[in-house]
């Protein structure tokens, strides 16, 4: 008798456990659907042609136009993608190329400057170190856009306001503000390594190149990844510097114009543009995901 009760109890405990698991999995599936719907929608819409006149983009067929629905064959086309590169009214390729150039140059120079700043503030002890750190902290409390208004006029005075290189210059000039995460990483490298090199007659320069840099691959990759991807999403600065000049737009500003002003007319083409922009960045991100996670997790703990 006692044995049976305990078995029953065991069974009911087991069934509770299984129900719990099922609920958790249902929760996770729902979560995944919520997180994936926008991207599925984006992908689906990008294959719908708007040339046949605007269609209400919400029925199941239009959601995934690849599948045929009853007597309607699948109406997927590449029209939007072709139009992206051929329509002179929306020079999407120029925007994309602008952003790519900005991102490549910014990521290289910014990474170098961030590493230099972070190394100096982390490993070296010199007069004015605290002052520089406090200064960067205080500047960081001002909204970045405030200086932007004046920078536009300064760049005008310098005769640079009509080119994307002004934007690159501004991104690069602010590099030192992003030193925190790299500094947090350098702080964790043991100081005895430095001392060993210095005793052997090396200089701080040797320490930096021979000891610190080879050990900091994760943080270097992280910094490159961040400084490469952030220009793709910057709207405020790029829009302000371009001042409505379409040839200076980056993808964010250009695509915003597509849906902002001509709301439903160009929506599907916006989707095509969004897919085209996202795919390379997604690939890059997933390849380097490990470094990204290490970087943000380390940064969050260090603060």
């Amino acid at each position: 008798m006692a044995k049976m009760i305990s078995q029953k109890k065991y069974r009911s405990q087991k069934s509770i456990k299984i129900t719990k698991q099922i609920i958790t999995y249902i929760f996770l599936v729902v979560l995944s659907i919520i997180w994936l719907i926008p991207f599925a929608y984006l992908l689906g819409q990008s294959f719908i042609s708007m040339t046949a006149g605007p269609q209400a983009p919400y029925s199941a067929t239009l959601f995934f136009p690849i599948f045929p629905n009853g007597d309607n064959p699948g109406n997927a086309t590449f029209d939007n993608y072709i139009a992206l590169f051929t329509d002179p009214n929306f020079p999407f390729f120029t925007w994309w190329l602008n952003t790519l150039i900005i991102a490549v140059i910014t990521s290289v120079v910014q990474t170098i400057l961030v590493l230099l700043t972070a190394y100096a503030l982390s490993r070296l002890r010199f007069k004015g170190r605290k002052a520089i750190m406090n200064m960067i902290l205080i500047i960081g409390m001002f909204p970045g856009f405030l200086g932007m208004i004046i920078n536009y006029f300064i760049l005008q005075l310098l005769g640079m306001s009509g080119s994307i290189f002004s934007l690159i210059l501004l991104y690069i000039a602010g590099s030192a503000m992003n030193y925190y995460i790299a500094k947090g990483f350098f702080d964790t490298i043991s100081k005895s390594l430095d001392e060993a090199v210095l005793i052997d007659g090396g200089t701080n320069n040797t320490v930096f190149w021979r000891i610190i840099l080879p050990l900091s691959k994760p943080i270097i990759v992280y910094t490159i990844l961040i400084s490469f991807t952030s220009p793709w999403g910057d709207y405020m600065m790029a829009a302000y510097l371009a001042q409505g000049n379409r040839n200076l737009f980056n993808v964010a500003v250009g695509l915003q114009q597509m849906v902002g002003i001509y709301a439903s007319e160009y929506f599907t083409r916006f989707c095509a543009g969004g897919v085209f922009v996202s795919i390379p960045i997604m690939i890059l991100f997933f390849v380097l995901q490990r470094y990204y996670v290490e970087g943000i997790a380390g940064g969050a703990v260090k603060g």
Partner: peptide, 23 residues
């Protein structure tokens, strides 16, 4: 599960925000 969620980070934010605002 993690990868599905992380897709949001991998896609440039302005794309998803503009898309959702249209949705």
């Amino acid at each position: 599960w993690r990868t599905i969620l992380v897709t949001t980070i991998a896609v440039p934010q302005f794309v998803s925000l503009l898309l959702i605002s249209r949705m």
